[in-house]
């Protein structure tokens, strides 16, 4: 019986305690942020949209390899010895043209694994997160800075150079072959040269 009255008193009392709490919260300013009007300032390197600074990219494919969902597509073309592509801001010498550097941001899982592997620190995450699109093909971002004409030019030049080199090599190996029969049996010591194929495989541009 005593418990009965105690329970009643306690329930009424705790209801008032609870009502006090909720009433106080009625006047506490809301924590809600009115999103499109007010935005939170994100850290500069929050995990959002990727940005690639193409001036610094050396086309080393490290980011492509690191990406767990394979959403980075890179193509490189060897630069001619006569071309000077300059050096990156981190002091690496650029040896490759990068005519294609696409990131399919729709596939990207924002894991950030591509960022730390970059030797020149040119692929970074930014605080941009508003990039919805009506067409998902627009979510494939092209970072390459070369124009199609430039790319065609570079490729043609590279192919020509390649051919030239191949022709040179072929000539060299032909010469070597021609020289070999006249040579001494000591040629066996040059096992290295033998293993190299007579014609180098055509490198795709």
């Amino acid at each position: 019986m005593k418990q009965y009255f105690k329970d009643i008193f306690k329930s009424i009392w705790t209801i008032f305690v609870g009502m006090k709490v909720t009433f106080r919260h009625l006047f506490i300013p809301a924590v809600t942020i009115q999103y499109p009007d007010v935005k939170l300032k994100l850290p500069e390197r929050a995990r959002n949209r990727l940005y690639v600074n193409m001036d610094d990219c050396i086309g080393c494919f490290q980011c492509d390899l690191a990406c767990p969902v394979d959403c980075i597509y890179i193509e490189t073309v060897k630069a001619l010895p006569t071309d000077d592509l300059g050096i990156t801001s981190t002091g690496h010498k650029k040896r490759l043209w990068v005519p294609k550097f696409d990131i399919d941001i729709a596939k990207c899982c924002y894991c950030g694994l591509c960022v730390p592997v970059c030797p020149t620190e040119c692929i970074v995450m930014t605080d941009v997160y508003e990039f919805s699109e009506f067409n998902r093909h627009h979510l494939i971002y092209n970072y390459a800075t070369l124009t199609p004409a430039e790319i065609a030019d570079i490729k043609a030049k590279a192919a020509a150079y390649e051919k030239e080199q191949a022709a040179k090599k072929a000539a060299a190996s032909a010469q070597a072959k021609a020289a070999q029969p006249a040579g001494t049996p000591a040629a066996e010591t040059t096992a290295k040269t033998e293993t190299t194929p007579s014609t180098p495989p055509p490198r795709s541009a």
Partner: peptide
């Protein structure tokens, strides 16, 4: 509105 503000939200705005 009451429910929202009691939970420190804003409710319909």
């Amino acid at each position: 509105k009451v429910s929202a503000h009691m939970q420190d939200r804003l409710g319909p705005m």
